[in-house]
Measured scan of single mutants.
Amino acid sequence: MATKAVCVLKGDGPVQGIINFEQKESNGPVKVWGSIKGLTEGLHGFHVHEFGDNTAGCTSAGPHFNPLSRKHGGPKDEERHVGDLGNVTADKDGVADVSIEDSVISLSGDHCIIGRTLVVHEKADDLGKGGNEESTKTGNAGSRLACGVIGIAQ
């Protein structure tokens, strides 16, 4: 089992970053940390998408990683996509320092995120509470600013 993974985020604009993942036990939580720069100040949706395909930019990554066919939600919700990591918060300089621990994603097994795409979005994720159909699919997080395929790390 891989215990570490990394993702280099890039987009068409100024947004870029490096996100690290570490899972010490196969059924334990995954620590997610790193930094994203070039964002507007505020909240930005942060999700693992189904495919590791960036051939047409971030759009070819498909929908959120959702092997259990659930509705979109927040990272602490029972009803959520596996890939729903909530929001990252950018400061006035456009930098989001990421520090998350998640017990639904994994670096092995059915919820493995390796080979899938991590995406940072234009807007805040409403965590499935926006009151419309799009909220239950995407959290109304808007366009995909930057993305990268999650790969095994040393």
Rank of each mutant, 00 (worst) to 15 (best):
A2D: 07
T3K: 15
T3G: 12
K4P: 00
K4W: 14
A5R: 01
A5E: 03
A5N: 03
A5D: 08
V6S: 13
C7F: 11
V8S: 13
L9K: 02
L9N: 00
L9V: 12
K10W: 05
K10R: 13
G11R: 04
G11Q: 04
G11Y: 01
D12R: 13
G13Y: 03
P14V: 14
V15L: 08
V15Y: 02
V15W: 03
Q16S: 13
Q16M: 15
Q16Y: 08
Q16T: 15
G17N: 01
G17P: 01
G17E: 03
G17Q: 02
I18L: 06
I18M: 14
I19C: 04
F21N: 04
F21S: 07
E22S: 08
E22G: 05
E22W: 09
K24T: 09
K24L: 14
K24W: 06
E25R: 04
N27Y: 15
P29S: 14
V30T: 09
V30M: 00
V30E: 03
V30I: 02
K31C: 03
K31L: 14
K31W: 13
V32R: 02
W33D: 08
W33A: 11
G34Y: 01
G34V: 06
S35V: 14
I36V: 09
I36P: 04
I36K: 02
K37A: 09
K37N: 11
G38Q: 03
L39P: 05
L39M: 08
L39I: 03
T40F: 05
G42S: 04
G42E: 00
L43W: 06
L43C: 07
L43K: 09
H44S: 01
G45Q: 02
G45Y: 00
F46N: 00
F46E: 02
F46G: 03
F46K: 03
H47M: 13
H47V: 09
H47I: 01
H47L: 15
V48D: 00
V48K: 00
E50M: 03
F51V: 09
D53P: 12
N54D: 13
N54L: 13
T55E: 06
T55H: 04
T55P: 05
T55M: 10
A56V: 10
G57S: 06
G57R: 07
C58R: 06
C58A: 11
C58S: 13
T59H: 10
S60L: 11
S60Q: 09
S60E: 06
A61N: 08
A61L: 13
A61C: 11
P63V: 12
H64Q: 07
H64Y: 07
N66E: 06
N66Y: 08
P67H: 07
P67G: 08
P67F: 00
L68Q: 15
L68C: 03
L68V: 07
L68H: 10
L68P: 04
S69I: 15
S69N: 01
R70H: 13
R70G: 15
R70S: 07
K71W: 13
K71C: 05
H72C: 03
H72M: 07
H72F: 08
P75I: 06
K76V: 12
K76I: 14
D77R: 08
D77H: 08
E78V: 12
E78S: 12
E79Y: 15
E79Q: 09
E79C: 13
E79F: 15
R80K: 06
R80M: 06
R80C: 06
V82L: 13
V82C: 06
V82D: 02
D84Q: 04
L85D: 00
G86K: 00
G86F: 04
G86P: 00
N87M: 08
N87W: 14
N87H: 07
V88Y: 03
V88L: 13
V88W: 01
V88P: 00
T89Y: 15
T89C: 12
A90R: 00
A90W: 02
A90K: 00
A90P: 04
D91P: 01
K92T: 09
K92D: 11
D93L: 13
D93P: 01
G94T: 02
G94C: 06
A96Q: 03
A96R: 00
D97T: 12
D97Q: 14
D97S: 15
D97V: 12
V98A: 05
V98T: 00
S99C: 11
S99T: 09
I100S: 05
E101V: 11
D102T: 14
D102I: 04
D102G: 03
S103K: 11
S103Y: 09
V104S: 12
V104W: 08
I105E: 02
I105W: 03
S106W: 04
L107H: 02
L107P: 02
S108T: 12
S108A: 07
G109D: 06
G109E: 01
D110G: 10
D110L: 13
H111Y: 11
C112V: 02
C112N: 06
I113Y: 03
I114H: 00
G115R: 02
G115D: 04
G115S: 05
L118R: 02
L118N: 00
V119K: 02
V119W: 03
V119L: 04
V120Y: 01
V120D: 01
H121M: 11
E122W: 02
E122G: 10
K123F: 12
K123A: 09
K123I: 14
A124M: 09
A124Q: 12
D125Y: 09
D125K: 06
D125E: 06
D125I: 13
L127M: 11
L127G: 12
G128F: 11
G130I: 05
G130M: 11
G131R: 12
G131F: 14
G131M: 15
G131E: 07
N132F: 14
N132K: 07
E133G: 09
E133Q: 09
E133P: 13
E133F: 08
S135C: 07
S135V: 05
T136P: 11
T136I: 15
K137A: 07
K137R: 15
K137P: 12
T138V: 09
T138K: 12
G139P: 05
N140A: 10
N140H: 06
A141Y: 09
A141P: 13
A141Q: 05
A141V: 11
G142Q: 04
G142A: 12
G142Y: 06
S143C: 12
S143W: 07
S143N: 11
S143Y: 09
R144G: 13
R144H: 09
R144E: 08
R144D: 07
L145V: 13
L145H: 04
L145S: 10
L145W: 11
L145I: 09
C147M: 08
C147E: 14
G148K: 00
V149F: 03
I150M: 03
I150F: 02
I150D: 00
G151L: 13
I152C: 09
I152T: 13
A153S: 14
A153N: 12
